[in-house]
Design a protein around this nucleic acid. Structure first.
Lengths: 191, 191
DNA sequence: CGCGCTATCTACCAAACGGTAGATAAACTA
DNA sequence: TAGTTTATCTACCGTTTGGTAGATAGCGCG
């Protein structure tokens, strides 16, 4: 995969991106606890020390991975989320969100595995997921406010279903994610 | 917690049970990858070597933990599951299941954390969760067969929601698990 | 009491881990 | 071309890990 010479030198930004991309894949497959510094390094053809030149510790690498996904993915979603909604509009936005996730299986897996690991208060990403969850729920709640009788409960309801469906889809790729979602949405957006 | 003398000798079955109980708690809190042999041992006041007298390896301990929960919990549920059902009966059974889980938070967390870790095909419990998931879904499917128009999709639907609700409840203990479940059930069992 | 069984311990090991220090080499600049 | 910069490497360290070998001590039975 990597060209033969033992030493491949890259400009800083480029190498950082390469490391983050590889690390994302690895964590998605095996969780953060399950991947060693050496494995992260080897995945982009370098040594531990080389990697630590870019990220001062393993933990710092994890944080960088999470932040990267946020800037890559969340911003584009949030931008779509401005106008005052009704039920149909809400459903359309959520459907778009579902379809986007489907195309990024390894990212979905990263978040699933990591967020379960991070239930432990000692985990380095515990705080991250706590605030992220609250923000996401608050955002969705505001979005349902205009037309749903119980926006707070409904937000939990919807997010729970999506989380669970993702989890089961990761376990069994045979599940038809979109069809399951649409069936759920038929009921959820019927009020 | 443990009485003062440095050595506490217990009959085999009793010690095994104590170890499994403690291990269940620890794995629930930190996942399997997150707990060391020494931590498992210390949790019941013994040393690594002492623990390894009962379980030949760390991995064997994990399997024993899973098998124990199965025999403790699943059997009593399966026994209730015989009669031919309609929608109301199905809902009653599922509600009972939900309420039971609520009372065993650490067990729910154990399964959530472990089953996410075990998405990795290399994980020692990967096969266990694969077959367990299939069996559970097939069981539920048979149970919905008599009255639901799409038992297979509905089984996925229901299990996904429960998984997701559990996950979110673990993240945020403020969620009213029962209320959320009943709201979902109102829609799900309306057909 | 004395003997055997075995649950438990102390002591140890090799491997793997996260991280550091200092040498080396690839690219840019003058 | 010579010099500076810095991305990367080799070599190493201290700690922790899963697991082993052999000594020790609590219990049941004669």
């Amino acid at each position: 995969m990597t060209p033969s010479p033992g030493r491949r030198r890259l400009p800083l930004a480029e190498r950082r991106e390469e490391i983050l991309k590889a690390a994302t894949e690895l964590i998605a497959a095996s969780g953060f606890k399950g991947v060693t510094l050496e494995a992260f390094a080897a995945a982009c053809g370098m040594t531990k020390a080389g990697l630590l030149h870019h990220f001062r510790s393993r933990e710092e690498l994890l944080i960088a991975v999470l932040e990267r996904r946020d800037t890559l993915d969340l911003t584009s979603v949030v931008d779509t989320l401005e106008p005052a909604p009704d039920a149909a509009a809400a459903r359309a936005v959520m459907s778009g969100f579902v379809r986007r996730n489907l195309a990024q299986r390894s990212l979905v897996q990263l978040y699933t595995v990591l967020s379960a690991e991070a239930l432990d208060p000692v985990h380095p990403a515990h705080a991250y997921f706590r605030t992220r969850l609250r923000e996401g729920r608050a955002m969705l709640e505001r979005y349902l406010l205009a037309w749903h009788p119980h926006p707070d409960a409904a937000a939990v309801d919807l997010l729970a279903f999506l989380d669970g469906l993702q989890l089961n889809w990761l376990r069994d790729a045979g599940i038809d994610f979109v069809a399951q979602w649409e069936a759920f949405a038929d009921r959820f957006f019927a009020a």
